[in-house]
Amino acid sequence: MANEQTNHPTSQATTMNSIPKTYKNYINGEFPRTESGRYYSVEALDGKHIANVGLSSKKDVRNAVQAARKAQATWAQKTAYNRGQIMYRIAEILSGRREQFINEMILLGYSQEAAELEINACIELIVYFAGWTDKIDQVFGSVNPVASDHFNFSRHEPVGVVGIISPETPSLLGMLGLLLPNMVAGNSQVIIASKQFPLPTCTFAEVLATSDVPAGTVNIITGLKSELIPPISQHMDVDVLVGDVSLDTEFRVLCEVESASNMKRVYFWESFISLDELNSSPNETISTCVHSLKDPYHILHVQEVKTTWHPISE
């Protein structure tokens, strides 16, 4: 990233020893600018400009879904052991860049304590889910004793391409709570980042890019929910939509209605904590959130059960 061209508007945050970053989308393992050429300004709580972030369009959604579709089989066909290792590797890289994320969170208005606790929780959650890759079928798969001369078993398989609508906060933990079960499931995804607090998610793309995650497995786009949820929920090649229960009813209903076009699976679970809550009681809110997110049933939501029969004979 360091030798990248910087033709964004000069940020006021520029100092001699810190060059501000241009935040871009992450599609197919690359960092393209939004196809639309538009941006919006991310500001600190006091109104100070922090960064310009892409206002992605439906064409970015299209490109991201295309990349996700292409990558899905590659990700799913890796052995469970391998997927677990790659996910663990994400935690290692994230851990090494811990300070960078804490700084970004503080820029966005986090207290030092909340930022530290959240990044710790993120690392913990990634390690937790990394361990599920080779256990989910052992716990939830089954051999079914059918009343005929057949061997019959059910195992869990990925659904395919997932649209993930991140909650606004917690800025990284909220997104990971939705992403990680999908990675365990073997899905590939397009993440719509938090509008107000997109920086940790954007920076997380750099972690992914350096963690052996195959290109296209996770794609991240920034922008307005009102512009991105319609195209992703209408997209005929998206198989699942997941989001957080704090999402505006209007968008949630839109997801449910549009899911009928190709019978998308739609799931919402709780990963939201408001910034106020994060700052006022970080310990309690984050540990509650992590407890709720550490739920293997979220993985089952975004998988299909496949049942195979075969005769038993000489």
């Binding site: 079914n144 059918v146 059910s154 059960v305 496949k306 049942t307």
Partner: peptide
Amino acid sequence: SGVVWSNTYNKFDPTSPF
């Protein structure tokens, strides 16, 4: 597909997810 019948077809059983 949710069901794969190998060397058989249209088999159903209460223990078998469909």
